[in-house]
Every structure is written in C-alpha cells, then in structure tokens.
Computed example of a mutant assay.
Amino acid sequence: MNRVQRWAAVAIVLGLMAGSTALLAGEMKADAATASEAITRAEAAQKKADSVNGEWRDTGKFIKNAKKAVEEGDYAKAIRLANKAESEGNLGYQQAVSQSKLEIPSYLKAMY
C-alpha cells in the first residue's frame, strides 16, 4: 500500500467515525418533553416492580434526581437517570417474578 492509499484509508476511517458520532448524538434529542416521557416510563416500571415487591433500592432515587435535573434544565442527565430507573424497574420486576417460585431446599428446612 503506497502513501496515497494509506492516507485515503485514514480519511475514510475518520470520516466514518465522525459520521457515526454525529448520528449517535443526533439520535438522542434532549428536551423537556423527551425527559418527561422518560420519567413517566420510569415511574410506570417502578410501579410494576413494586406490585410484585421487586422494587430495587435506587430506583426512586434515580427518578427523584431525574425530576431535579429537569427543573435545572439538564434534560440529557434527566433522560439518562430516568432510563436507569426504568431499567431497574423492569429488572426488579423480572427478578421478583422469577424468584417467586423458589423453594427452600430440604437440608435448609431442618434448620428452621
């Protein structure tokens, strides 16, 4: 590969990297409406997890901090925190449902 071909390859790679970064940044629009929707989804996931006693410890904190970020105008942070809370809510629900049928092994029953 000669020098011109190497520089062309470098230019192509850099162009692709810049394009993908711009695409990723453009996909997440951070405004009040998007943050509000994310918080609403997080609250729904939290209620769903709570309905089976599966709410995780920090879910409420993430929602509270997301609402605070909206008040401060930091919509990207609010969306990020609300998405974490939504994820925790969904995972907490799945965990509680999957563990609802756990049985204590016989060797442990003798201890109680």
Rank of each mutant, 00 (worst) to 15 (best):
102 L>S: 12
110 A>Q: 11
12 I>M: 01
5 Q>I: 14
70 V>I: 11
67 K>P: 14
43 E>S: 10
69 A>L: 11
85 A>Q: 06
40 T>P: 06
6 R>C: 05
109 K>G: 07
81 L>C: 01
12 I>G: 00
78 A>H: 02
7 W>H: 14
3 R>K: 13
86 E>H: 02
12 I>S: 06
30 A>E: 02
50 D>R: 04
79 I>G: 01
47 K>H: 04
73 G>D: 08
31 D>E: 02
87 S>G: 15
21 T>W: 10
93 Y>S: 05
45 A>M: 03
65 N>W: 13
22 A>Y: 12
82 A>E: 01
46 Q>A: 10
76 A>E: 03
1 M>L: 12
45 A>G: 03
100 S>R: 13
105 P>K: 05
61 K>M: 15
11 A>M: 08
31 D>F: 04
53 N>S: 00
32 A>P: 12
32 A>L: 09
91 L>G: 06
84 K>D: 13
7 W>D: 14
98 S>C: 08
62 F>A: 11
15 G>K: 02
89 G>H: 01
11 A>N: 02
20 S>L: 14
87 S>P: 02
61 K>R: 14
101 K>W: 07
90 N>F: 08
58 D>P: 10
76 A>T: 06
26 G>T: 06
1 M>V: 05
45 A>V: 02
89 G>F: 01
88 E>S: 02
7 W>F: 14
78 A>K: 00
77 K>P: 15
17 M>Q: 03
111 M>Q: 05
45 A>H: 04
58 D>S: 12
98 S>I: 13
94 Q>A: 13
9 A>G: 07
91 L>S: 12
36 S>M: 11
